[in-house]
Amino acid sequence: MTSTSPPATPDIDPNTTHLSPGKHEPMTATIPATNPNNTINPNTTVTKTPNTGTPTDLDAPMSANESGGRVRLDNVIHGEWIKFWSVRSTSITLVAAAFATVFFGMIFSWTVGSDEPAPGPGFGLTDPIDVALGGINMAEMIIGVLGVILVTTEYSTGLIRTAFAAVGRRTNVLRAKAAVLTASVIGVMSVGVLGALWAGQAVYGGTEPTLSMTDPELWGVAAGAVAYLVGIGLIGLALGFMLRSASGAIGSLFGGIFIGPQLMQLLPDSFTDAVLKYLPSEAGTAMMSRVNDPDLLSTGTAYVVFGAWVFGFLGIAAAMLRRRDA
């Protein structure tokens, strides 16, 4: 269709620049003003112009007259999925988190017995499961930051406004990003967490009995660890939408979620006993431990509390997104 003029000429070839003549014809028939009974199937979002026989139709399958239908959440999720996986840094970051989980889990598991009777490096833990998941402490930071930068890079470049203008309903961008992050973290980190548990059991240097990979307890812990990482990523995402800047959101994430609870341990026990276990990181610890620690919530309660934190952050982010200028 570029046969009429070479592309180098300043005058623009109508066939390459613009839309085919054929596709404007249905427009007069579908404009609501002239055809009030115009019924376009609202489910038809991927549009193809009826082929009128001209080869240019293939080049311009999208036309303005077919603006029936709406942007649906799954369309936005598809777009965010493409964005997530078309930037190398996101996939590298996720794989790094999985690698760190396995690597540190192996180191901790392998060295846990070598230092008796002092506590092992797994933050004073000796349980073969807890020690094997020691790398989660590194992975949660990486994934939290990933959640933040998924949003803040778009604010710093201005891309987020392009996305909002294209989608209309801004909270759908948040939902879509959350869905893509959730699916990606589950996909990659399930491998990382199970890998760490498997490798950890294999090289465990402590005295307690290790678990087999078929043990349902191990799978329960693995699910808790993956759920925790997903939640931390989502909190990072929500902080990104709230604060819009990487430095602010990462600072809040580290200060509020990771370091804050550790500082609170310096406070009197009467206070920390009542409050500490309800914080996201402590609830997360309860989700991915099989040890009955009186300082922690029960596993079921921990899921509820942690979920409340995650949805609380996302809810505030969504409310701010609706209210503020983009």
């Binding site: 303005a64 239908g69 709406r70 201005g158 891309l159």
Partner: peptide
């Protein structure tokens, strides 16, 4: 509008790409 990109195409900031 159901599908904003089919109604208005805009360029606000050319640097708005990753």
């Amino acid at each position: 509008h159901g599908r904003p990109l089919t109604v208005i195409g805009s360029l606000m900031d050319a640097g708005a790409v990753h």
